[in-house]
Design a protein around this nucleic acid. Sequence first.
DNA 1: CCTACCGATCGGTAGG
DNA 2: CCTACCGATCGGTAGG
Lengths: 191, 191
Amino acid sequence: MNRSKRKQEIYAASARLFRKKGYVAASVRDIAELVGLEPSSLYSHIKSKEEILINICHDCAELFAEGMEMILDSEKTNIEKLDSLVDLHIDIAYNNPSSVTVFNDEWRHLPSQELSEFLLKRKDYEDNFKKILKSGMENGDFEQMSLTTTFNIIINSVKWLHFFAKKLKREAFEVKREEIKNFIRRGVYSS
Amino acid sequence: MNRSKRKQEIYAASARLFRKKGYVAASVRDIAELVGLEPSSLYSHIKSKEEILINICHDCAELFAEGMEMILDSEKTNIEKLDSLVDLHIDIAYNNPSSVTVFNDEWRHLPSQELSEFLLKRKDYEDNFKKILKSGMENGDFEQMSLTTTFNIIINSVKWLHFFAKKLKREAFEVKREEIKNFIRRGVYSS
DNA sequence: CCTACCGATCGGTAGG
DNA sequence: CCTACCGATCGGTAGG
């Protein structure tokens, strides 16, 4: 097995382990066992345990940032943009259930510099999301409501699906997608 | 200071610390420092670090269980029951922001016996919640939808408020309460 | 409630 | 990629 493939394997195993036990409780020895190496041998592929967390959080943040950029650059209406944002969250949850759990719950264990960058990126994403909501409220597409409340309800309405991703067949998952999207539409769209 | 008051102080400080750093990363030495004791002195008040987690999770589970029981025993309509359930979640989040964070995010570090009990109680709560939703869907009060999806969207629509509880004045908090409740009503009530 | 201390486990390094 | 090992920190105990 070549080096970069092995590295990917280590990251994937770590994401699953961090998801299951939490970053702090997951030991380097646990990770090593999952990939069939001695603990010290991990260090020819990684620099530190923290580096793994940094990479997982960063990659996941990139998925959101890229999705947001595409949506902002599109010619869509606010209604369509919100729909696409919800799909973005749902797709990431389905395709990366482990990383997204780490991204959601373990980011606070990032070392301080990476933590600052992470929080800035997250703030950026939130600001862009709110801009779309604001624009939709101003042109009458969306119900008038606090941007912070609306934003938080929407993203948290999806923030449980990643726990079901592995159990659900594609078809059943798509049913949930529509249910969530309909719920959000009823809550957000101006009536 | 009497013993039980000191014990309460230790639990409160631990809840705040567990919230901030996570259960595993929070050390007994950290807790001791917060309450102004030597680490070993803690052990004349507590049996173990795990015992603290068990108590926090248990107490919080009780708040939900008691609230659920009152609502189930009431003569309310399904619409009123759902409204009361959302208020229950919101009130607990406002009054116990630290414990509820530990309850939400740190329960998996419970020792195995307490973990089983915890999961059983949580399942019980979920089943009762869904019964109310089901009844409301059957009599036409609520929109037809998967019970699991509806349940998860509702509880997660509130599961961010506890991060704001300390920052928000009562008045601002009550505004958020109404916004959340209205959002859920629009999403759940049959139109 | 403190001083003194313990075994276990942690992330990580040296050297091959 | 392994064997051997290190200092730091962990939760917790003995004894007063």
